[in-house]
Design a protein around this nucleic acid. Structure first.
Lengths: 210, 210
DNA sequence: TCCTCTATCTTGACAGTGCAAAGATTCTCG
DNA sequence: CGAGAATCTTTGCACTGTCAAGATAGAGGA
């Protein structure tokens, strides 16, 4: 269908999600409104209700798409890394880069109070992203990759969990603090170098060889 | 004055801030409203304007008080640490504990888009907190403490800045991820142990002796 | 004491919001 | 072809932040 001006939109759900991405990026989470999204999709202000329930339901799907985009970005950037030394730093760069390029998406992705945080789509999207990060750590540790399904039972291995936590906390903390302007102490011209050096050190500390 | 029912409240500014702390904690950042704060303070809905300007001005002061409370909590908990091994872990515990005990304050403290993030009171409060963290790292490194004033010029020393970044990213990332329910992979009964072990490792990596 | 100026607080109005109920239109499938 | 389900609109409500205008109280000088 998908014809213009029809009573039944045909692809309203997808159109609303794309409008939502635009509104979120342009107006920010602060001024994000369902009604503006509906206006951009060309429908009445309560059309979203049928597809998403309430605002939290809508934001949940937008957040899930955010995790998908973050995962894609990480995977793309990782494919280009040449050695272990570079890989962990590149992961940090990609994660921080996503947060800085999409601050409003990053904000909603990590606001469990605004989302249906047990929604299956959201949880799966976040888990898939987390799996990419875990495999980065596994390569640092000299272990083979692992699938999402294997991962859900694999964390009886405390050593891997420790390293994974250390890695994710470093990456996420870096991204969040930078995005929310709490790293003003770091001069702009030194930022890239500091990210690389600190990330390389954190990555190296979980490698068995050194 | 501070008498009840007076036209001039006498201490309205402080009363509004305390009401704001209550409303934020009870209703959450999601449902925080100026009007509810005014109601609790017993004044009209636009009384806050004279003292704080707009909503961002009000939230800025609440966030600054949040940083003060976080700093006080860190200082208190640090005073009890017995050795370096424990000190960094205890810092993490205190920071994570604050985020979990005051999630809504933590959220507003790190939302630069909702605050006047260059406000002097806010910046100073955040800097004082950051100074406490920096001194934790300095003790790990075997260096003497530093004041806020000295700190603002001290970061030509790249090595200290590196360690400080690593430490803060670890602590903050841990707290933020935990508070926003993104550490579901960590079983509850293992959480305390993992926090202690990962933090001790991160602290140890910046000590010259090992 | 009185009087003006300023700080403080109230009142009323406005555009905008999310949500819910009820109605309208279109699609689907027997 | 016709009934029921799916999809979208209309209307109404309580609530919000901000603004403009007015009311009240305190402070300091004559």
């Amino acid at each position: 269908m998908a014809r213009e001006q029809a009573y039944h939109h045909g692809a309203l759900r997808e159109a609303l999600l794309e409008a939502g991405d635009m509104v979120l990026a342009e107006r920010g989470l602060k001024d994000f409104t369902l009604r503006e999204c509906a206006r951009r999709a060309g429908v009445s202000h309560s059309a979203p209700k049928h597809h998403f329930g309430d605002a939290a339901g809508f934001l949940t799907q937008i957040a899930a798409r955010g995790f998908d985009r973050l995962r894609e970005s990480l995977e793309t950037r990782l494919a280009a890394a040449r050695d272990l030394d570079e890989e962990f730093a590149e992961t940090t760069r990609a994660y921080v880069g996503f947060a800085e390029a999409n601050p409003e998406h990053f904000r909603i992705m990590f606001r469990c109070d605004l989302l249906h945080d047990m929604d299956e789509t959201l949880v799966r999207a976040a888990q898939r992203t987390f799996t990419v990060l875990t495999n980065v750590i596994r390569r640092q540790r000299g272990e083979p990759e692992i699938t999402l399904e294997e991962l859900n039972g694999a964390f009886s291995f405390a050593a891997l969990l420790e390293d994974t936590l250390i890695g994710w906390c470093h990456i996420h903390g870096f991204a969040h603090l930078k995005m929310e302007r709490q790293l003003r102490i770091v001069p702009d011209q030194d930022f890239e170098s500091l990210l690389t050096r600190t990330s390389a050190r954190v990555g190296r500390m979980m490698r068995p060889s050194s």
